[in-house]
Write a protein that binds this DNA or RNA. Structure first.
Lengths: 240, 240
DNA sequence: GATAGTAGTGTAAAAAAAACACTATGTCAA
DNA sequence: TTGACATAGTGTTTTTTTTACACTACTATC
């Protein structure tokens, strides 16, 4: 097939016709103290969609990878540094952006909101956490991106132990269960949940207990990342 | 956060610094008569990687969506028209292409090879099917893309009835089982497989049987797409 | 008529998941 | 100090799902 198409497919430097721009956008999930799932949004102070809320994100520079761009935008716009970050989907509809053709590679991030809540509020005066079932209307097609991210988070949580990314380093089984219930949108049986999660051998039971709670203090646990890596290698099933 | 970063994130038309180019690449899966999983590759006739095999693909035009670009490239380079096509992952490493910064949105496609085998061989003299476990060395990072596609196909097949896309309209349960065994890389129990797949109510048993086989002719079945859509709505579980 | 190759069928055992309720401990307020 | 409240923590039984397993039937070919 010695035709123009093959040629077009890998045209060298001289490629000069108009091309789409690439951005990254991040859906940052957090969990507040009332076990509500939150998303971090930025208020736009430029047209278009000035004043509306949008996902943190921005253009990909020529000398940085997609993931690097996502991490940079997160740092710049929200102060968030190290997080669980995973590619979600690439959105390429023609009219996503009213100004020009923009393709965006969406990522989703899980952060320990209990740690970052303050930073986001101070460093970025126009960044705020919103409960997922009470989101404002969003700029561009960001509502679609958020919906996609939510579905992915639910699907992922069922089969991979990623919930720990949303909790503090040390947490109780009760917190973990509430997390699953919130994200999956269904109640879980306490005893069955504890059996399942403990049988995975991913939790280290600490000799520490909750402080300053107005009820019996629960034991604290820690996620065993090393063990997780090893079990993942062996194709272990982490379904909840 | 009224700083340069927010501004940068949604800079208007005047955005003039160098930007990455975007391509699409397609991993096209097919299943041959010996129940071997195949991938369709194109032989490059331009530098770089001249003479090497690569995935069909090419630049995304400013006035077409990502999926349209993937379908166009497939049509142009291989003659394939209508297929199951789903976005796989977006690859954005800096040195993917030795000439310039190129980000590629990879798709994977499932086709009925029994129908297309001839077209690909005639329309595109430099297109050919390769068995997945005997692939030649590939141009760019296309081997990584293929590996990602393989994993995705396996994961997807376990939870969604997409195998039918690889078979002719009418097929036997034996063919279907072989498909699963090939893709998943494990043997399945005949009786258990039939029970499970028939209990999903996704198959229409036809009053037709195999022709021209040198053994007892098996009943032919058809995939019930309508039923599939309805069950999917209800959150039905299609795990095999 | 023997052989080769696939078609087609059910049951029992094992494993996994689901259902289910009470006692224990600590804080707070009356 | 006592009672109310909130969560901690713990096993067993039932149900469902999954797995293991073997023979007869049909058709073409040699």
């Amino acid at each position: 097939m010695n035709n123009e198409h093959s040629t077009l497919s890998f045209m060298p430097y001289t490629y000069e016709f108009p091309r789409p721009s690439i951005t990254v956008d991040c859906v940052v999930f957090g969990l507040d103290r009332e076990h509500k799932l939150k998303i971090l949004l930025i208020q736009r102070n430029l047209e278009p969609f000035k004043g509306e809320w949008a996902l943190p994100g921005g253009f990909v520079r020529i000398d940085e990878t997609l993931e690097a761009a996502a991490l940079r935008e997160l740092r710049e716009e929200t102060g968030i540094e190290t997080v669980f970050l995973e590619q979600l989907y690439t959105f390429g509809k023609l009219d996503r952006d009213p100004r020009e053709r923009v393709i965006t590679v969406a990522y989703y991030a899980l952060v320990n909101l209990w740690e970052y809540q303050i930073r986001a509020a101070t460093d970025a005066s126009d960044a705020a956490w919103f409960t997922v079932d009470a989101l404002p209307s969003l700029a561009f097609d960001h509502d679609r991106i958020v919906q996609t991210a939510l579905k992915r988070l639910q699907g992922k949580l069922r089969y991979e132990p990623i919930g720990f990314e949303l909790l503090p380093e040390k947490f109780t089984l009760f917190q973990l269960q509430k997390l699953y219930e919130t994200v999956l949108g269904q109640e879980l049986d306490k005893r069955n949940f504890r059996k399942k999660i403990l049988n995975m051998n991913l939790l280290i039971a600490l000799d520490e207990f909750q402080q300053d709670v107005s009820h019996r203090a629960a034991r604290l646990y820690q996620f065993d990342r090393l063990q997780y890596e090893q079990l993942k290698e062996k194709g272990f099933n982490f379904e909840i």
